Amino acid sequence: MHILNEDLEFVEENRQCSYFDDEISDMRYRYMNHCSVEEYQNMLEHGWRRFGKMHFVPECANCTKCISMRIDAKNYKFSKSEKRVISKNKDTKLYIQTPSITKDHLNLYDKYHKYMHDKKQWPYQPITPDDYVRSYVQGKDKFTKEFLYFRDEKLIAVALVDILPKSISAIYCFYDHDYENLSLGKFSILAQIKIAKELDIPYIYLGYWIKDHFSMGYKELYKPFEILTNRASLKEDTIWKKYEL
């Protein structure tokens, strides 16, 4: 790890990749106490992501499998199957507010990750309140929201979402697999697309897409979408292109 400057930007090199056992990752991080809308918009367009006050972007020397992608919300048309998902959730209540933490948040988070550990061998240990606050509550600004989904007054899904004038960034979503028939992960993305259309926001940034990956490949279902084709510094121009499957 090399500290680059006093504003807490650093690179973590030669780390075991989270997605491939045979790959090594290099990640650039920037810890920001305050991030303006303009700064954040520029970072999103350059492939950066955010958890709490920590922003990051991959700079892996030998791999480019993680591809930044964004849904073209303006031109998105809901398929018949997506309309069925929306219809199934007609009794699912959605509340949008600034991020918070409750015992229900923590219990749902742990239940979700225990399920994913058993199903997909995700690493698992119960999250502490401090860790949850650091990742999902800290760094909140006027653009940071949580989408809370309720069924029969029970919290069944949480999505952390940044809403900017020109983009929505889907940060993270976790949900109760006891309600698997509701397709809550998909419903949350569709809800964000609907909101983007209502607010005339052109793009939804879904983070990194890895083609055919068992955990990251699903993002290609949300067509049309664009991918970032170059690795540019924050002062350089980016090249986004529509992806054709």
Rank of each mutant, 00 (worst) to 15 (best):
M1G: 10
E38L: 03
A157M: 04
K74P: 02
D212W: 09
C17L: 01
S169W: 14
S169N: 15
Q97M: 13
E220G: 04
S36C: 04
T229C: 14
S183H: 15
Y112D: 07
T128F: 11
V133I: 15
I193N: 02
R28I: 08
S167W: 12
T229F: 05
S135E: 12
K166R: 12
G139K: 00
I195S: 05
Y243L: 15
L206K: 04
K142G: 05
R151E: 00
L206Y: 07
I168D: 08
E12T: 11
Q192G: 05
F56H: 15
F20P: 08
R84M: 12
F10P: 01
L4H: 11
H105E: 04
H46I: 00
E12N: 15
D91C: 02
S100N: 11
Y31M: 02
K154N: 00
H46P: 03
S68C: 13
F174W: 05
Q16R: 09
K194S: 09
N181T: 15
K120S: 12
E12I: 10
F187N: 09
N14H: 11
C60Q: 10
N42G: 03
L228G: 03
E236Q: 14
D130Q: 12
K142T: 09
C63G: 03
W48L: 09
K93E: 06
L184V: 01
F147L: 10
I163H: 03
K111S: 14
R15W: 07
K194A: 03
D141V: 08
D237S: 11
Y109L: 05
W240M: 10
